[in-house]
Structures are given as C-alpha cells and as structure tokens.
C-alpha cells in the first residue's frame, strides 16, 4: 500500500513586527528607517523643488510659495521637520552604538527615549520660532 507523499512542513519564517513585543529600542529602530524614507522621498523632493523654484525666477517662486505656504503645507513641514530631527537624534544614538557603546538594556532604553524627546523638542522649538517669531 503506497502511502501518499506527505508535503514537507512549511519553512519557518523569521518573526516579524506582529510577533515581537513593542519596546522603545524596537520603536526607534523602525522609526529610523521610516523617517529616513519620509525624508528621502518627501523632504528631499520639496528641497529640490525649492532650489529649482529659486533658480527659475521670482514668478515661478511665487507659484511655488502659493502651494507650499498654507496650513496643509505647514502640517507637512512640521511632520518632515519632526522626521528630520528624529532621524538626527536616532542617528547620533547609532554613532554611539557603532562605537560599541550603550548596548546594555538600561542605556539602550535611555538613549532611545532621549532620541525621541530630542526630536519632539527640536521640532517644537523650530516651529515655535517660525510660527510665533516671523510667520510663514
């Protein structure tokens, strides 16, 4: 009696985001990649457009400003500024870890929170100056 061939069990998959318990070290690691990509495809695009608008002359620059300077534009700007300062803070944390320091749980957790707090405070400071100081 020929037994039916048994299908091999599915290969184990590497556990992903849905499996791990969320910790702040994991959050900053993921946020570093997410904010980096937001900068690469958001901030960099607006930055290049800003430079091209400056090079194109005052008329085109007015058109650029008419789109960028708006409540929605400010919201995008605040979001991208936050992404930039977060990426900056987490990048500095990365330098420390690249040097082989700060891998123990307590320090790692502290530097992760420090990066998050730095991102929020720096964003609030910069936009406080922009919005309260001289307007858009």
């Amino acid at each position: 009696m020929a037994s039916r061939p048994i299908a091999p069990p599915p290969r184990p998959l590497s556990p992903h985001l849905t499996i791990w318990k969320w910790r702040v070290h994991m959050a900053v690691s993921i946020l570093n990649r997410v904010t980096g990509h937001a900068l690469a495809f958001g901030a960099v695009l607006i930055f290049a457009w800003w430079l091209a608008a400056l090079a194109s002359g005052p008329e085109y620059f007015r058109f650029y400003q008419s789109i960028v300077v708006s409540p929605f534009g400010a919201l995008v700007g605040i979001g991208l500024t936050w992404a930039m300062f977060m990426h900056m803070g987490m990048g500095i944390r990365h330098f420390i870890m690249d040097a082989g320091e700060g891998f123990d749980l307590v320090t790692s957790r502290r530097t992760a929170w420090a990066a998050i707090i730095f991102g929020v405070i720096a964003t609030a400071l910069l936009w406080g100056i922009i919005l309260l100081g001289k307007g858009l």
Binding site: V44, L45, F47, A48, L51, A52, L54, A55
Partner: peptide
C-alpha cells in the same frame, strides 16, 4: 536626476 536638478539650481543662482 534630483541631485542634478538641485546642484544645477544652486549653481545657476550662485553663478548667474
């Protein structure tokens, strides 16, 4: 493409 646009724009403003 974007880097070329950005660099050219800076140079156009600076050298123009």
């Amino acid at each position: 493409a974007l880097a070329a646009l950005a660099l050219f724009s800076v140079l156009k403003v600076a050298l123009g």
